[in-house]
């Protein structure tokens, strides 16, 4: 039983919102770490829109008051324990990591993902509603991609994380915005798009003995 049905309903709505914006690259930077000297960090120092909704969903679920989240049993309990331990290990690895901030942030991201998985498992959003929401979110990507292909450029959705295609070739415009955004990072967006995503242009070609 939950004592706050409205919070439970809002938790489900937040979970659906997270699923809708799952692939979007929109994010909020966290001014806790200067990663100017770090390469291949994939914007770990930011929180995505979907993660914000996931956090809101988890907090609202706790607010709703069902005991399942605090006392998961059986296989779900084993999953929760091992997954949260993994997040804790990731955060604890800051003690021996070369970049401690990266380890802490990865632990925080992992904790959000695990919490979202548990909320989805126990909050029971109707499956057809989750699937429809996810497909609708993908359709937005399709519309954006087609619009980029037609206009051969940006369509001005910067706040959703649409990347700058001005330096990219024509075929880049049909790539999903968020996918391409994964490959970029502030300050070298264009160079990373125009080179292999495995390494920076001046990087070493792996040929270890």
């Amino acid at each position: 039983m939950v004592s706050r049905p409205r919070a439970l309903a809002l938790s489900r709505a937040a979970a659906l919102a997270a699923i809708f914006v799952l692939g979007w690259a929109g994010r909020l930077g966290l001014p806790v770490l200067d990663l100017a000297a770090v390469r291949f960090h994939y914007q770990v120092h930011s929180i995505r829109v979907a993660e914000m909704f996931a956090v809101a969903s988890a907090l609202l679920f706790i607010r709703a008051g069902p005991p399942a989240l605090l006392r998961p049993r059986g296989l779900l309990g084993a999953f929760a324990a091992s997954a949260f331990l993994l997040a804790g290990l990731a955060a604890a690895s800051s003690l021996w990591a070369f970049y401690p901030g990266l380890a802490l942030l990865q632990g925080a991201h992992l904790a959000i993902w695990v919490a979202f998985a548990i909320v989805v498992a126990v909050v029971r959003v109707p499956p057809h509603r989750m699937a429809a929401t996810f497909v609708l979110g993908l359709l937005v990507h399709v519309v954006v991609g087609l619009a980029q292909a037609v206009t051969q450029g940006n369509i001005g959705l910067w706040w959703l994380g649409e990347p700058d295609w001005s330096c990219a070739g024509a075929w880049h415009t049909v790539v999903a915005p968020s996918v391409a955004h994964w490959w970029s990072s502030p300050g070298r967006r264009c160079s990373s798009l125009c080179s292999s995503h495995f390494r920076a242009p001046d990087c070493w070609v792996p040929s270890l003995p």
Partner: peptide, 20 residues
């Protein structure tokens, strides 16, 4: 996480499902 959570959803014997 979403897929894992969905995969674990129907384990009703493991979870006390929230009810209004």
């Amino acid at each position: 996480a979403w897929l894992v959570g969905w995969w674990l959803t129907d384990d009703s014997s493991d979870v006390q499902q929230p009810q209004l």
